[in-house]
């Protein structure tokens, strides 16, 4: 009878363990393979292709011609691109601050369980599920200076020449910010409400015993408790605002005098309307580190506060 030695048993056990580990890892990869392959085909490959295109002069249907850094040097002279970045930043800041503040306010009110709020709960999410195009059309018929309902009412109330809202650079941008904030508030309200509802009631009870009023409770309990959600919403809001195009397209078409030209509209115009696909790729490539930096800055600032 052959007796196995201790070292040979250890080796066998080790091999068995390794086989189990391998099976575990292989199994895990097998499960995430479909998702990863989709991510690879629809995200990673296009990004790599975009990087390649940004170094080419490409006009459909002609083949792409490598031009080195020409597109990037052209970008530095593109005043409209710079203006569109500035306009997008103004829009982003305005709609984010207003939208998140409104969402927080509404969430706090809803969390207070005041009478009649259940009725209101049904409606606050409506702007999010309304398509951007329909939203823009609604506001078009509100703010149009000749046929809009707002100017009609202003005239009824005695104003002789009401403002041409969409034809003045400042008011046109303010209207876009208002619409962005309106949609943003609707989207973020349930997120903030869920976050507020997860704060333990005992904190508030303790604060009340210490004599803290409602404002102090909000400032020192509610706000710090939902800070991580607030930062998440800010990041999403910045990314979402940078992608704004449909509302601008319908309402102002980037005007007056390019005062509402946003960056994605400019990229789209260069790539598809003017057929400078290579240049459009370079423009969108520049946006990536820009967004990454803003996101990093927000995370840094919020972690400092925490």
């Amino acid at each position: 009878m052959k007796v196995e030695t201790v070292p040979s048993m250890n080796v066998k056990r080790k091999k068995k363990r390794e086989l189990h580990r391998f099976k575990d890892i292989a199994g895990s990869y097998l499960f995430i393979f479909p998702a990863l392959s989709l991510l690879f085909v629809f995200s990673i490959v296009p990004i790599i292709y975009l990087i390649w295109l940004s170094f080419t002069d490409y006009s459909l249907p002609n083949p792409a011609v490598f031009v080195g850094l020409e597109n990037f040097s052209r970008m530095l002279e593109d005043k409209l691109f710079m203006k569109s970045i500035w306009n997008t930043l103004v829009y982003t800041f305005g709609s984010m601050v207003l939208g998140l503040a409104a969402a927080l306010g509404i969430a706090v009110l809803l969390n207070r369980k005041l009478k009649g709020l259940r009725f209101f709960k049904v409606f606050y999410f409506l702007p999010t599920i309304t398509s951007e195009v329909i939203t823009a059309m609604i506001f078009l018929w509100v703010f149009d200076n000749n046929l809009g309902i707002l100017n009609y009412l202003l005239k009824v109330f005695g104003m002789e020449s009401p403002p041409a809202w969409l034809l003045q650079p400042t008011t046109a941008m303010l209207i876009l910010i208002f619409i962005g904030a309106w949609r943003g508030a609707a989207y973020n309200t349930p997120i903030f409400l869920a976050a507020l509802q997860s704060v333990p009631q005992s904190y508030y009870e303790a604060a009340r015993l210490d004599g803290a009023n409602a404002w102090k409770q909000f400032l020192h309990i509610s706000l710090p408790s939902i800070m991580h959600i607030l930062v998440y919403s800010m990041v999403m809001s910045v990314i979402g605002s940078f992608q704004v195009v449909a509302v601008v397209d319908i309402l102002t078409n980037g005007g007056p005098m390019d005062s509402t030209m946003v960056v994605i509209k400019h990229v789209w115009q260069q790539s598809f309307e003017f057929n400078y696909v290579g240049y459009g790729a370079a423009l969108s490539l520049v946006l990536f580190p820009f967004l990454l930096f803003i996101t990093w800055l927000q995370l840094k600032l919020s972690s400092g506060k925490e």
Partner: peptide
Amino acid sequence: PVPPPQERQTDHPVAM
């Protein structure tokens, strides 16, 4: 009237 800023310019004159 000063034309509206939208790209599509065909609806406004007919409506007016």
